[in-house]
């Protein structure tokens, strides 16, 4: 069993894994940045009183939340070509991750905004601040602190989700494991190595999330 664990093969394949790791890293960073923009816009529409903005935002968020990411990936992967859109797999994958995480991020931000005490809003109203000023000076700064830990949590989810891109042959970390398995048939070595790298990313992000949670000093003021 594990006694036969072949480290030599892993070292032999290390360049492949490192390339995969780099791809996973880049895909995740680009996707999370795009998802953050998508999420902010979707949230702004979601809480807006204008119905033409609000209802499409609700539909987007609920559809994403109630269907699996893998189905969303296949939808774009098999669906975009039928629309005549031909883009590389990696872009399809990033698009899917962006749309998927964007919906969750929209809800995270909305929860952050809702967590701010209503009295804060009333205090702002009473001193004559307008909607934009209240958002900018009172609500968003307080919401931000509450939002950062779950946003980092979403980043963890996104890194792991990016593994599904291996199924549309994007050359990322999990794909490296699949390639090594098909060439050498040493799945134990291949997938435990893959798992090890994911764990490394996970522990870094988790430590960040816990640190940011402790840094939320302002919440104690109330």
């Amino acid at each position: 069993m594990l006694a036969d664990f072949n480290f030599r093969v892993i070292f032999e394949y290390l360049p492949l894994f490192l390339t995969g790791l780099r791809a996973t890293f880049l895909i995740s960073i680009v996707s999370i940045a795009l998802a953050l923009c998508t999420g902010i816009i979707a949230c702004a529409c979601r809480i807006s009183p204008a119905r033409v903005l609000k209802y499409p935002a609700i539909a987007y968020i609920e559809i994403i939340r109630s269907t699996p990411l893998l189905v969303q990936i296949y939808f774009l992967y098999f669906g975009l070509p039928t629309l005549g859109v031909r883009i590389p797999e990696i872009q399809t994958g990033i698009l899917a991750l962006m749309l998927n995480s964007g919906a969750y991020i929209a809800e995270i931000i909305r929860a952050g905004i809702n967590s701010v005490d209503e009295g804060q809003l009333e205090a702002g109203i009473s001193s004559g601040l307008n909607y934009v000023q209240r958002m900018r000076f009172i609500i968003l700064p307080q919401a931000l602190g509450v939002t950062i830990p779950p946003l980092l949590g979403q980043a963890i989810v996104l890194v792991k989700d990016s593994a599904l891109l291996s199924l549309i042959s994007v050359a990322e970390l999990t794909r490296s494991g699949q390639l090594m398995t098909s060439e050498r048939f040493m799945p134990t070595e291949a997938f435990f190595t893959v798992a090890f790298f994911y764990m490394c990313i996970y522990f870094v992000l988790k430590a960040l999330a816990e640190w940011s949670q402790k840094k939320l000093i302002f919440r104690e003021a109330y």
Binding site: Q120, A123, I125, S126, G128, Q142, A221
Partner: peptide, 29 residues
């Protein structure tokens, strides 16, 4: 806005902005 400039309001629960210093709280409006 014009109306509320003339009316100061003090709440039971204070509702100071927790992320701002005392001075920032007062100068915001």
């Amino acid at each position: 806005t014009r109306l509320r400039e003339d009316i100061g309001f003090v709440f039971q629960q204070f509702h100071l902005y927790p992320h701002m210093t005392v001075l920032q709280n007062i100068t915001l409006a």
